[in-house]
Design a protein around this nucleic acid. Structure first.
Lengths: 245, 245
DNA sequence: TAGTGGTCTAGACCACGAG
DNA sequence: TCGTGGTCTAGACCACTAG
């Protein structure tokens, strides 16, 4: 019995074997043992090293794929999935002509004392200082989303050394490349508000126009809160489709 | 080889066996062969009658469970799932104190010529005549959602014989009991608008207040459009949470 | 060509639910 | 107690990807 196998059988034995294996693998991914886009060991290898059958391994992997943690590629292997929020805005806004990424304009970037901020998730600002960025997103030349972003300074200090050009339209790849921080998932909450003066100026709409507000808490694999943002978008451009069953 | 087995192997052989079985079972459910909440044949029975292994049956059923078509109950069997949209509103509106069902007040119920209606899904009104209901939904004594509902008269004529009391707060069970029409799934689209005079009166809010508009097309198992509705809810009560990965 | 995941099988034993 | 789905195993062959 390998050491992995011993670890597996030491876990809560009330759970089925595949569930224990799933938990063990989750922890290994969370610990960063395999980088995103890198293949994890083959199913047969896992089966051997944990001392379980191939079917059990497959059932564990299947769940992790469903959860979005892993990704299978036939012929090449099973990979740690890189979360992609690129299309996230397309889910909520009718942006004609899909695929492309809305342009970004960073309006402000500063280090602030966390305690001065209005109520936001405490975890993000554990270090006492936070980075605050204000960003405007445009579709063509039309602004449609104003964003207020908060990051714990401790983990993201490297961002302050970049020019705003280097930040680019997608932040999460920068978080990973520059700060080594990987966003694994996020929780979003949508509400509807009306534009105050600041939002109206940014979005070029009348004060009092309806805006959709998206609050997002972005988390690492281990559940650490890494980023909090509040986005306000033109409600006229909002559209969301769901299938219910 | 049973006749079922012959049917299965007659289907598109480029697909894996479990996928063909899944399609065959989907058709049997759509045809109404098994009523909702009734057990379908046991896995071992299916395996025998289709001449495939248990594992193949399980993989087909697993997909159908994921799709929401079937439901497993350990020890008792696998069942055709009855769609439950009861909690649907709770996904979108902050209604304090969960579980309970918002009260309904039917404001109008009439038979109209479909061609007189503004643009709506044509399928619903194939028969030329439609039933139109206007309904107000309340939480406690507070109205929060105004609904405009269209049904093809041909299939739902029986509804006109009921008193509005008999319609009750949940329509889909009535559709099933009185008209034999089963809603299997629905497509919803959310947008944000502002209250016109009629909506403002119903929702007791100022004209021009933001409202969330939910357009729903409800479908039978076979994809027939059975109901179309447009609901307008107070945006101040709107809240929607998503997890993204 | 070698190695990966994908499909399919056969069979054992367990946990649960209902009568 | 009996029949159901739930877990787990062992092994065969196929389809795909990459070097």
């Amino acid at each position: 019995m390998t050491s992995e196998a011993a670890l597996l059988h030491a876990t809560d034995s009330r759970l089925p074997l595949y569930a224990r294996l799933r938990d063990v693998l989750t922890r290994r991914v969370a610990a960063g043992e395999w980088a995103p886009d890198r293949a994890i060991p083959a199913e047969s290898t896992l089966a051997d090293s944990y001392g379980v059958s191939l079917g059990t391994v497959r059932k564990a992997l299947e769940q992790l794929v469903d959860e979005g943690l892993l990704e299978r590629r036939q012929g090449s292997g099973t990979f740690v999935r890189r979360a992609r929020f690129d299309q996230s805005l397309f889910r909520f806004f009718r942006l004609s002509g899909g695929g492309a990424i809305p342009a970004s304009r960073i309006l402000r970037r500063e280090v602030v004392d966390a305690w001065r901020l209005p109520a936001t998730p405490l975890g993000v600002m554990a270090g006492g200082k936070a980075i605050r960025m204000q960003r405007l997103r445009l579709w063509g030349d039309e602004p449609f989303l104003a964003e207020d972003i908060l990051l714990p300074f401790e983990r993201f200090a490297g961002l302050m050394d970049l020019t705003t050009d280097e930040l680019g339209p997608l932040l999460y790849p920068v978080y990973e490349a520059v700060c080594g921080q990987i966003i694994a998932r996020a929780e979003e909450e949508l509400t509807v508000a009306v534009a105050d003066e600041a939002a109206a100026r940014l979005l070029r709409c009348p004060v009092g126009s309806p805006v959709v507000r998206i609050e997002r808490l972005a988390l690492a694999h281990d559940g650490t809160a890494l980023e909090w943002r509040r986005s306000s978008g033109l409600a006229s451009q909002f559209r969301y489709k769901v299938d219910i069953k």
